[in-house]
Design a protein around this nucleic acid. Sequence first.
RNA 1: UGGGGGAUCGUCUAGCGGUAGGACGCCAGCCUUUGGAGCUGGCUACCUAGGUUCGAUUCCUAGUCCCCCAGCCA
Length: 564
Amino acid sequence: MPEGTSASNFIREIVAADHAAGKHEGRVVTRFPPEPNGYLHIGHAKSICLNFGLATEYAGGVCHLRFDDTNPTTEDPEYVESIQEDVRWLGFDWGNHLYFASDYFEQLYSFAERLIKTGSAYVDSLTADEMRHYRGTLTEPGKNSPCRTRTVDENLDLFRRMRAGEFADGTHVLRAKIDMASPNINLRDPVLYRIRHTAHYRSGRTWPIYPSYDFAHPFSDAIEGVTHSVCTLEFDDHRPLYDWVVERAGTADRPQQIEFARLNISQAVMSKRKLLELVESKQVAGWDDPRLPTLKGLRRRGYTPEAIRTFCEHIGVSKRDAVVEMQLLEHFIREDLNKRAARVMAVLKPLKVVIDNYPEQGSEELEAVNNPEDASAGTRSIPFSRTLFIEREDFLEDPPKGFFRLAPGREVRLRYAYIIKCVGVTKDPQSGEVTELHCTYDPQTKSGGPDARRKVKATIHWVSAVHALEAEVRLYNPLLKADLADMPSDQDWTAYLNPQSLERLTGCLVEPSLKSASPGSRFQFERLGYFCVDPEATPDLPVFNRTVSLKDAWARLDKRQPSN
RNA sequence: UGGGGGAUCGUCUAGCGGUAGGACGCCAGCCUUUGGAGCUGGCUACCUAGGUUCGAUUCCUAGUCCCCCAGCCA
């Protein structure tokens, strides 16, 4: 269990005040109540961290994981499973408090009968269309349905027959009898039960009728002994209805609904509907596509649960509609990976370098530190030889002012190795493209050696040509354009997909130590960024996913003034 | 238009009558045998107008703007 968070927010204050006042006999019970109709994304992480975080701040506090599975048409066991995996992956534990609203169907049903018997609910036989007209509008009050005056016996009979499966979908609903003239539309006799002759992924075909969210949710909270029911802003004006149900549920203790603003992140698709659409239309490889802000996608991209939790702590909780910048998320994963990721050398776009004065068949092992910020990470040895590859971008035949890396006649340090000097450039006679560099090395400048302190203006990375491992590297940028508004009406996703959102580089070369890198492990390719070994990659070719978008690592270094 | 919610640096967020703070970002400089790391300094905010008060981001009044609600979705 991750350590509790300390940053204050208004919900924490409410819970603290209730706890201090001895409300709910000092219990703190929260819940995370997803509908199993999709995969969890970073937005859910905020709710998970909040709810589980709240509970763990109090002795005996618990957070339930409850599946709000009251709509058989959208739900699937695949989602139930993935949601549990993701909550665990994030680092939270619901103990034995795993619940399903569908387990309450029987209780919900008798509760509904009780409401009918007390005259608080009735069966309405209007069509959906008629009901809409009777409901009125935002500015006009609704009218009572002709069915509203049905007797208790009539209602009971009808409702029992609904349960028995006698009626077709859409022919009847059970409604709460509240107030058709209420300025709050949610109180204009909301639907409690609807007929759906659809198999439910858990209860199968035992029920032809299903309770609505507004009925099942408060009831579930109440019977589970939830004390603080934290939900998002759009349920704010459902609260009177929530209270209406809770009051009639008649439990000794009553839960309190508290609303907060859901998380939006710039340049990320956070709507379940759109994510589903992307997955089903095969615009992305699946729910775990690393371009997606799903927890599975982020994991595959190399995000750590710790970084996501830290992010969630830092964005705060409020009631304002907010859009958090992607850079903030990226900041926390960088901060985390900076501490834990081992540094390795890799070359994404190779340029061959021959060290002319190095022994023809010679090679040697050089010692490299795994993490300069963490001595306990130890060292590894990397092979050096006469033929190497360096990053293509680290050489310029005609360097502009301010470029301090390799160029004809220039010296540069090879990280962990020697200072080399470029003495020759081979070009393709046709295209004029540089194909090979000839360099000499200065044996005295070996890292740790006698002249190792000699200053050169840049240090570049490299891999030994004969030893290097070929790999595939996937570079990811945020999935969608920043100005994403609504789903395009023509469903033309290509217009919305950022063409640079996924770039595959094959023929990349990484140092041989990565041969045994385990899936999911994270590295910093020096100066190229943080990468994660794709957990889903095939074994024949190592695949690395870039964790965060890149800034120009050389900009600052190259910009510095030549000192000598 | 009825109801509900909300407005503080570019972005999140703190403040609860007493000099508006933090984080991200950005800018400048330093450092570096990786840097996107590290160090130093800097940047910009209380929606508007009245009122109460010695003093208002905070309390009151009136506006303005934004979001949500007219599913038998959640």
